[in-house]
């Protein structure tokens, strides 16, 4: 389900790229439906100028948010989650829920793949 992060968390395209993005989203949605897979980001309406801010998507009353002029559902309940009575900290964090989640892909966006370590802290410059 990393597709959600690719759509929701990816760096924004230029306005010029919005049309291409819509085409890509449409193709992705179609392929998702054909594949029978659950989508993490779903286009609510196919206009390209339906919103300028999240508030414009409020008329759909479904939690959608504005991305590149489109109202899209920002996330879906997690597909991998902890079932049962949580005990450890991670159990609480990853327990099953019907709330929307928006994955941040550390590998794709930060280059932190396969358990790579974080860089060392760097002291900030003194305040001016």
């Amino acid at each position: 389900m990393d597709r959600s992060s690719k759509h929701v968390g990816a760096r924004p395209p230029t306005l010029r790229g919005a049309v291409a993005r819509v085409a890509f989203l449409g193709a992705w949605l179609l392929s998702s439906v054909l594949a029978g897979g659950a989508a993490c980001s779903v286009i609510v309406e196919s206009e390209t100028n339906q919103c300028a801010s999240d508030a414009d998507c409020g008329r759909f009353n479904n939690g959608s948010v504005c991305q590149s002029g489109l109202c899209v559902l920002p996330g879906s309940p997690p597909t991998e989650c902890f079932e049962g009575q949580p005990a450890k900290y991670e159990d609480f964090l990853n327990q099953c829920t019907d709330a929307q989640c928006i994955k941040f892909d550390n590998c794709e966006r930060l280059g932190l793949c396969d358990g790579a370590a974080l860089p060392a802290l760097v002291d900030p410059p003194p305040p001016k």
Binding site: N94, A99, K103, F104
Partner: peptide, 11 residues
């Protein structure tokens, strides 16, 4: 494994 808002949806 996934990011969450404080609220169940943005609205």
């Amino acid at each position: 494994t996934c990011g969450y808002l404080p609220d169940s949806t943005p609205f």
